[in-house]
């Protein structure tokens, strides 16, 4: 009855491999992978919400918050420790999400999507008018340190890359277990039938609230890592098209497995980089077409391809 689940073991292997590969990766690819891992963090949170039937069109709010936390901590408060900042930005995002979550947990479907979008646009609106934070241009982020050590500019990207790998690994490891837990299934239960959940003595609102806060913290960590590797933040991070991109990636990967978000994010960055290089005026068109094709032919995302292959293999 219980299928053996090798995910945890495979994740450990993947983590070690990614770290080793990091030593030989060309700069641009290491950068791309770091960004992909960072965005995947946001997407993992989004997928968790989607498994509960909720699509947030405003994860950019926390992504941006995480990025600006790094920037403000470094530029204005003199705090540059990478690990410390990650905790701080997750904490700040968690607090804001707890506040907004009290309201949002009562909303579903389109209204949840629109309200989350509105909140992220409020942050955007505030940031573009705040000249202290560089308005629409944003500002450059101070170089991060690691436990008191200041990496040289050449080492920095490798440090952030490794940190991203570690954080992504921990996220994937625990989120995979989370999906299988009672709370994980509670999300699917809320998606499927809230009345039944209510009559099983559990508050669907509470389930949504917890997931929303967790997703926000993940998004903030993703935003922080992006800011560290890119060295720059701007209000665009909170704009709704950024949030739309996360939804796109979530859909591309699928919600079937935690790793799907990472595959989706990596593929997305690759498609975007290539499309942008080959056809600077039509790369959005390529993305849009990909999105439509995925929705039409692979409603459960790319993961369903991998899964189908696996099941087929076992049957032979």
């Amino acid at each position: 009855m219980l299928k053996t689940d090798n995910t945890s073991r495979n994740l450990c292997i993947a983590f070690v491999l990614l770290l080793l590969v990091g030593l030989i990766l060309p700069n641009w690819l290491a950068f791309l992978t770091t960004i992909a891992l960072a965005k995947a963090m946001v997407v993992v949170g989004l997928v968790m919400l989607m498994r509960a039937g909720l699509v947030s069109f405003g994860q950019g709010l926390y992504y941006c918050l995480g990025g600006y936390t790094v920037g403000i901590a470094g530029q204005h408060l003199g705090i540059t420790d990478a690990v410390g900042i990650l905790f701080v930005s997750a904490f700040i995002a968690g607090c804001l999400a707890a506040l907004l979550g009290l309201l949002l947990c009562r909303y579903r479907e389109i209204f949840f999507a629109m309200l989350t979008l509105a909140f992220s646009m409020i942050l955007y609106g505030v940031l573009v008018k705040t000249s202290e934070l560089g308005s629409t241009d944003g500002f450059n982020v101070a170089k991060v340190t690691l436990l008191g050590w200041q990496p040289s500019p050449g080492q920095l990207s490798l440090v952030v890359y490794s940190l991203a790998c570690l954080v992504a690994f921990l996220t994937a490891f625990f989120m995979h277990r989370y999906y299988q837990s009672g709370m994980g299934f509670a999300g699917e239960a809320v998606r499927e039938n809230e009345i039944r959940v209510e009559y099983l003595g559990v508050s669907p609102q509470r389930v949504v609230f917890i997931k929303y806060v967790l997703a926000a913290m993940l998004a903030a960590v993703g935003g922080s890592i992006t800011a560290m590797i890119a060295g720059h933040v701007d209000p665009e991070m909170a704009y709704w098209t950024t949030s739309g991109e996360f939804v796109f990636v979530a859909l591309l990967g699928g919600t079937g497995h935690v790793v799907a978000a990472f595959i989706g994010a990596f593929l997305f960055e690759v498609i975007r980089t290539i499309a942008f290089d080959l056809a600077p005026y039509t790369w959005q068109m390529i993305l849009g077409t990909t999105l439509l094709l995925v929705i039409f032919f692979l409603p459960k995302g790319l993961w369903s391809l991998l899964k189908a292959k696996k099941v087929g293999g076992n049957n032979v």
Binding site: I110, A113, Q284, M285, L287, L291, L292
Partner: peptide, 17 residues
Amino acid sequence: EVVMILVTYGVLLILED
């Protein structure tokens, strides 16, 4: 309904280009 939002989001990306 939410899937349809994403479909029109794809249309938006295409139309912009």
